[in-house]
Simulated scan of single mutants.
Amino acid sequence: MLLQSVWFFLWGLLWAVFFMTDGFDLGIGSLYPFLGKSERDRNMMIHAMGPLWDGNEVWLVTAGGVTFAAFPLVYAVMFSSLYSALMLILFALILRGVSFEFRNKVESMAWKRVWDGCIFIGSFLPALLFGVAFGNIFKGIPIDGDGIYQGTLFTLLNPYGLLAGVLFVCLFLMHGALWLAIRSDGDLAERSERLATRLWPVLTGVAVIFLVATYIFTPLYDNYLANPVLFLVPLISVAGIFGIRYFLLQKGVFKAWCASALTIVSCTFFGVIGLFPSLFPSSIDPKFNLTAYNASSSPLTLKIMLIVVVLFIPVVLAYQAWAYKLFSGKVTDDDLAHEETY
């Protein structure tokens, strides 16, 4: 029981780290057609996320790998139930990665506009669909006792799932705008900071609506009501959202970005804690729920995996910390003069 609980927490942590890191990439890409007023702006936006985006997506691969190895039944049912949505996310992420490399291969504005559109689609669509997927998991997926999905792609596009998608998009837009304000300079940095300020009331309003809708449409609050101390997690989310506003008023953009990162992590754990011990709940009948206990691998597998995680995750964290420190400065015209491909 303890091993399954530990791996449930690690599963949630990996998703939280992925959303925190790749969230600003997805946010910048979603803002690409709106803040990229000139060719210099667009190149600066790509360079702001270019050295880091592929490293950030390692956490997505890790989260998927942990689901497969620690909870194979969940992995199987998830990828059959959410196959269409997950394939759309995968193809969009592939399209985004290709766009970074192909955009500057031909000196043609028509060529660049095509790939600029792909950068936007490859960023906005995953941001929305990740939210839709997790919103439906919070609400419950229509799976029967055999793990067979009783619905279609449009079943997932219900009001609560779409609301969760809008919340994810707002979180990532804020995260991306703040990161761009940190990494860019001049007019682009100022416009990014102003946009973050304007996004704040939108994000706050969507978050409030989401919390109310979660109480109405999901059982997530059951764990919180049974253990009121857990309400500390959503309170941290609230503190993070107001921290963004406070630090923006103080012109502390980096601190505002850290508050945004805290908001994303705590929002993820709000859902994960509310789900526990379910990983993939059924909306048909709770007895069909896939939990950390009935869908996990053998104890030996979980022990071996835990040893590997304890040994290698600190190495990955150290490398990413070094990479973020290395690329912590503002993008300069000298950087833009180089034709790196990302």
Rank of each mutant, 00 (worst) to 15 (best):
F138T: 00
K139Q: 12
F102L: 15
R113P: 09
A127L: 05
F138L: 04
S99K: 03
P142I: 07
A133S: 11
K139C: 03
N136S: 12
L129M: 10
K139Y: 10
G140R: 07
F134G: 00
C118G: 08
E107R: 12
F124M: 13
K105S: 14
D116F: 00
G140D: 06
G122E: 05
F120L: 12
L129R: 03
F138G: 02
W115Y: 11
K105F: 12
P126Y: 01
L125S: 06
L125Q: 06
I137W: 05
K139L: 09
L128T: 07
A127H: 01
A110K: 14
I143A: 04
G122H: 07
L129I: 07
L129Q: 04
E101K: 13
K112A: 07
S108D: 14
I121R: 02
N136A: 11
W111H: 14
G117A: 12
G140C: 08
V106M: 15
P126I: 02
F124A: 14
F124Y: 11
D116G: 15
F130I: 08
L125V: 13
E101H: 12
F130P: 02
V132G: 09
N136Q: 09
M109D: 15
G122P: 10
S123N: 08
G131F: 00
W111E: 05
A133Y: 03
A133P: 10
I137K: 01
S123K: 00
A127G: 08
E107F: 03
N104Q: 14
L128Y: 08
K112S: 12
D116E: 13
A133D: 07
R103E: 04
S123E: 02
A110P: 01
V98A: 10
A127W: 00
L129A: 06
F120D: 07
F102P: 05
L129E: 03
I141W: 00
N104S: 15
K105C: 09
E101I: 06
I119Q: 02
A110C: 01
A110V: 14
F124D: 02
F124N: 03
A127Y: 01
W115N: 04
V132E: 05
G140S: 07
M109C: 02
K139N: 08
E107L: 09
G140M: 09
K105I: 12
K105Q: 13
L128F: 14
F134R: 02
G135T: 06
F124G: 00
G122W: 03
N136F: 07
C118L: 15
P126H: 02
F100H: 04
I137M: 06
A110N: 11
V132C: 10
K139G: 06
K139F: 06
S99I: 01
W115I: 05
I137G: 00
A110R: 15
A127Q: 01
P126T: 03
I137R: 00
F120Q: 04
V114Q: 07
F134T: 05
I137Y: 01
V106D: 11
L129S: 02
N104D: 15
F102K: 13
G117C: 10
L129G: 01
F120I: 06
E101D: 15
R103K: 13
V114H: 12
R113G: 11
R113V: 05
E101L: 06
G135K: 07
C118I: 11
